[in-house]
């Protein structure tokens, strides 16, 4: 990292006076959030409306994602669960004509606040996609390092972080001897764990997963579900899944969506054994969807 950047980083005043998004004074934070990186982060969605052009995909949706918990989003195809998740890291607006209104708070900061840099949001809210997508022209090492390099990490510090991320993703032992090989040379399950390592390396606060196992075989799926269980001690995780057994296995709480609305959000066990809403009951017992 060049001296200029180092200077900017170290000369940042503490979070209290400068505000969480760092651009302007007068942020709404009173209490300093000096907690170490490992403490959980809460995500609160308030009256979110998302559109694809004319199409109203998410309607007045409000939901709370508890810190250090795994929340599963379930629902039939087209119910808007992927859209919701993509609104949290503001990837939704990348689609031409798509936009969203409302609030998405990560701890005390609204990611849709006009003073917030969308690039900073995306670093802090990581995403794992349905189809593993390691960068095809990069080696395993470079893939994991990609996010870190953007922020100027270099040399031995970079190496440490890459190794740490690969360990956290449970991939280190399998690839430590071939870090220079191409990322796409791995199996599907390994590629997905590589993508997870890549996301972890960027030091996010929240991890979003959009059907991360739907392209994988059962064994790879199992490995990733174990990984999710470990990761929740450090991160807040939201996972979209169309597989209810998976939700039952990994999630602490589950939310059921239908046609862009939140129908019910409860502890997973309650959702699957004794849901409040009729529609939820019908969905989880397989009557539709």
């Amino acid at each position: 990292m060049n001296p200029q950047e180092a200077k900017e980083m170290t000369s940042e005043p503490p979070a209290t006076t400068r505000g969480r998004f760092g651009r302007e004074q007068g942020a709404a934070t009173a209490t300093p959030v000096a907690a170490p990186q490992q403490a959980g982060h809460r995500v609160t969605v308030g009256e979110l409306n998302a559109y694809y052009g004319e199409q109203h995909a998410i309607k007045d949706l409000s939901i709370d994602f508890e810190p250090n918990r795994v929340t599963a989003l379930i629902g039939p195809s087209g119910c808007g669960k992927s859209t919701l998740v993509r609104c949290i890291n503001r990837m939704h607006e990348e689609i031409p004509g798509a936009y969203a209104t409302g609030k998405v708070m990560v701890d005390d900061t609204d990611v849709y606040d006009s003073r917030v840099d969308v690039v900073a949001v995306r670093r802090a809210v990581g995403m794992v996609f349905q189809k593993p997508n390691p960068f095809p022209t990069m080696s395993i090492y470079d893939n994991v390092a990609a996010g870190l390099r953007l922020r100027g990490a270099k040399g031995s510090h970079l190496k440490e972080r890459v190794e740490a991320s690969l360990r956290s993703a449970g991939l280190w032992d399998e690839v430590k001897d071939r870090l220079a090989k191409a990322g796409i040379g791995l199996s599907g399950g390994q590629q997905q764990r590589l993508c997870i390592a890549r996301t972890l390396a960027a030091e996010p606060e929240v991890i979003l997963m959009d059907e991360p196992c739907s392209a994988l075989d059962p064994i790879a799926t199992l490995k990733i579900e174990e990984l999710i269980d470990e990761l929740k001690t450090k991160y807040t995780i939201v996972i979209v899944t169309h597989n209810m057994q998976q939700a039952a296995r990994v999630a602490d709480t589950t939310a059921f969506m239908l046609s862009g609305e939140l129908v019910e959000h409860a502890d997973t066990e309650k959702m699957f054994t004794n849901p409040d809403d009729d529609r939820t009951e019908q969905y989880v017992t397989g009557k539709f969807g």
Binding site: N89, E94, A124, L150
Partner: peptide, 29 residues
């Protein structure tokens, strides 16, 4: 260039130019 790779770059917290440099140019070389 598949949208996958561009999204992966953006989701990591890359600026537009960084995304082009990471995902578009190497693929199109």
């Amino acid at each position: 260039v598949p949208a996958d790779h561009k999204e992966a770059a953006l989701a990591l917290g890359a600026t537009r130019w960084e995304m082009i440099r990471m995902a578009v140019l190497p693929y199109s070389r």
